[in-house]
Amino acid sequence: MRIHYLQHVPFENPGSILEWAIKNGHTLTSTQMYKDEPLPQQKDFDWLIVMGGPMNIYEEDIYPWLAAEKIFIKESITHKKILMGLCLGGQLIADVLGGKVTKNPHKEIGWFGVRLTEIAKSSPLFSFFPLEPTVFQWHGDTFSILPEGAELLASSDACEHQAFVYDKRVFGFQYHLENTREIIEGLVENCSDEIVLDRYVQSTEDLLGHPEYIKQDNEWMEMFLTRLEQLYNEGKI
């Protein structure tokens, strides 16, 4: 299987997703959007992973490559690719599908629980999760209005729309399960100005002080990807 990913900053790579792909013998390619690298042809990949980043989806004047990226994501959905967007990536997917991305009532930075919906709990892709998994958050915006036809997968008190699925094969996550310690360290180093302690903003010590959460999140991501691949290979999505 051929997996392509779009990366927006040097310090936010796919983390444990890369480890899973390598372990399972999949082909990995990437476009470093911040370097203005060319996007691939649709025929050259099967799955698309859209990573996070500190920019906002509407900042095309500052990051002009966002315009081309949105077109590319839309084309990938039209071509029935498997898509997964993480944080900014999920917001970009929601936007091109006709949803709305705005400031969330609360900035979320840290380890917080989300609640799975009944749709998620009944899906083989999420049935192994606890009812309120602890996940890593770092966002100010969110997909406040889901695209028409999208189904909500997770919610929380701080952010109503934490995850969604569209057409059984397109996934948007507001949170991160893929982050390794190195990625979190990179976020702290490059985005420390955002860490202003608040109800849903934790300290640097809290962000880096939970290796058990990182390990568990990475295990959940691996299980999700393994089940997604199985359904994909069986032609069920």
Rank of each mutant, 00 (worst) to 15 (best):
residue 94 A to P: 01
residue 95 D to R: 03
residue 96 V to W: 09
residue 97 L to D: 07
residue 97 L to Y: 14
residue 98 G to T: 04
residue 98 G to H: 07
residue 100 K to I: 14
residue 100 K to A: 03
residue 102 T to C: 08
residue 104 N to W: 12
residue 107 K to F: 12
residue 108 E to H: 05
residue 109 I to S: 03
residue 110 G to Q: 09
residue 111 W to I: 08
residue 113 G to A: 14
residue 113 G to N: 15
residue 115 R to D: 10
residue 116 L to A: 03
residue 116 L to T: 06
residue 117 T to R: 02
residue 120 A to F: 04
residue 122 S to Y: 03
residue 126 F to I: 05
residue 126 F to H: 05
residue 127 S to Y: 04
residue 127 S to F: 13
residue 128 F to D: 02
residue 128 F to K: 00
residue 129 F to V: 01
residue 129 F to N: 00
residue 131 L to V: 11
residue 132 E to R: 13
residue 133 P to M: 13
residue 133 P to R: 13
residue 134 T to G: 01
residue 136 F to L: 10
residue 136 F to N: 02
residue 140 G to Q: 06
residue 141 D to S: 04
residue 142 T to M: 15
residue 143 F to A: 15
residue 144 S to G: 00
residue 144 S to A: 12
residue 144 S to I: 08
residue 144 S to R: 00
residue 145 I to C: 04
residue 145 I to H: 13
residue 147 P to L: 00
residue 149 G to L: 05
residue 151 E to Y: 07
residue 151 E to F: 12
residue 152 L to W: 04
residue 157 D to T: 12
residue 157 D to L: 12
residue 158 A to T: 05
residue 159 C to T: 15
residue 160 E to W: 13
residue 162 Q to M: 09
residue 162 Q to I: 01
residue 163 A to Q: 11
residue 163 A to V: 01
residue 163 A to D: 14
residue 164 F to T: 00
residue 164 F to Q: 04
residue 165 V to S: 10
residue 165 V to N: 09
residue 166 Y to S: 00
residue 168 K to H: 12
residue 169 R to F: 09
residue 170 V to F: 11
residue 171 F to Y: 15
residue 171 F to Q: 01
residue 172 G to C: 13
residue 172 G to I: 14
residue 172 G to T: 08
